[in-house]
Amino acid sequence: MNLQRFTDKVVLVTGAASGIGLGTTERLAREGARVLACDINATLLRDETDRLAQQGLDVTAQVLDVTDAASCEAAVAEAVARFSKLDALCNIAGTLLNKRFAEISEAEWQRQMAINVTGIFSLCHAAMPHLLASRGNIVNCASIAGIIGVPYGTAYSASKGAVIMFSRALAVEYAGQGVRVNAICPGAVATPLSQNTILPDDADFNLVGKLLPLLPVMGQPEDIAAGIAFLASDDARFMTGAALVMDGGQTAL
């Protein structure tokens, strides 16, 4: 990869042990970033960051529970203490629940919101003073489920719709202060999260089938990582408040 858009840049990435978060960590590091890679899965995170470090990439592991505000504050503080600044925050950590609405418990609803929404709030809140200092930016991982209704995904769709509107509102508030905020909206991507998701028994596949990509290939984490890298780079300096869709045509119909 010849692009070096993140030379001398410091980026914090969540959900970095697998899937889109791992793909983003590797992509940004290969473009020259110093990455604080964060995830709740300490063992997998250490294995992956060690692998990337052995390839000469500047990646440091930090265990993070996005549902814990103190853990979010500690991760941001570690990035700044270690690297003296923070240029970009990529909130990729998330969870997915596919379940009939009538069967969703309050605890399951709260978990979706805690991981997918409140975690992003906590990290943005902790990072903003440092991003103001660096005139940096934020990329939040939403989903096409925040744009269209997804069958058996009421809690997930609600959380991702919240991410999009949170990103837009934050972008408006901080545009005049030099901090950009954008969301990325992946469609179907081959990640452990999506591949381990089970649809309800007797699911209506006429509904589910409407969500298939138009392209004859499945999205890969590196595809979405490329979009995140663009949004976090100076190539997107005129983009803020955007919700960039990367879905192989799922929402084109």
Rank of each mutant, 00 (worst) to 15 (best):
R180I: 01
G178P: 14
D201L: 14
A190G: 12
D202L: 05
P186G: 02
P186K: 05
P186E: 01
T197P: 03
I198S: 12
T191D: 04
K210A: 05
V208K: 13
A190S: 13
V208G: 12
D204M: 10
C185H: 04
V179H: 08
L193F: 00
V179I: 13
P192V: 08
A190M: 09
L207P: 10
A183I: 11
G209Y: 08
G178Y: 03
D202F: 01
G209A: 07
A183N: 06
T197K: 07
D204R: 06
I198K: 15
L199H: 15
D201S: 15
N182F: 05
A203I: 10
S194Y: 02
C185V: 06
L193R: 03
L211Y: 05
D204G: 12
Q195I: 06
D204L: 06
N182A: 05
L207C: 07
R180E: 02
L193K: 06
V181C: 12
I184C: 05
L199I: 04
G178M: 09
P186Y: 02
L193Q: 10
P200D: 01
N196V: 04
G209C: 09
A203H: 12
D202M: 05
L193I: 14
N206D: 05
L207H: 09
R180W: 00
D202S: 12
I184W: 02
V189S: 09
V181P: 14
A183Q: 04
Q177W: 02
A190N: 13
P200E: 00
N182D: 00
Q177T: 04
G187V: 11
I184G: 03
I198G: 03
L193H: 02
C185D: 03
G178D: 03
Q177R: 15
L211I: 12
V179G: 11
T191W: 02
R180V: 03
L193C: 06
V181F: 00
R180A: 03
A188W: 01
L207A: 11
I184R: 02
G187H: 08
I184L: 06
L193D: 00
D201V: 15
T191L: 08
L199P: 12
A203S: 11
N196M: 01
D204H: 08
N206F: 00
S194H: 09
V181T: 11
C185F: 00
Q195S: 13
L211T: 13
N196R: 14
D202I: 06
F205R: 14
P200C: 04
L193W: 03
L193G: 06
D202E: 10
Q195E: 01
K210R: 14
A183Y: 02
V189I: 15
V208Y: 04
V181K: 13
L193V: 14
I184D: 00
V179Q: 02
N196Y: 06
I198R: 15
V208C: 04
N182K: 07
N206K: 14
N196I: 10
I198M: 08
N182W: 07
T197S: 15
N206S: 14
I198Y: 02
D201W: 00
G187E: 02
D202C: 03
I184P: 08
A183C: 10
V181I: 11
D204I: 09
R180Y: 01
C185T: 07
R180Q: 09
V208A: 10
L211G: 10
C185Q: 05
P192S: 07
P200T: 04
Q195L: 14
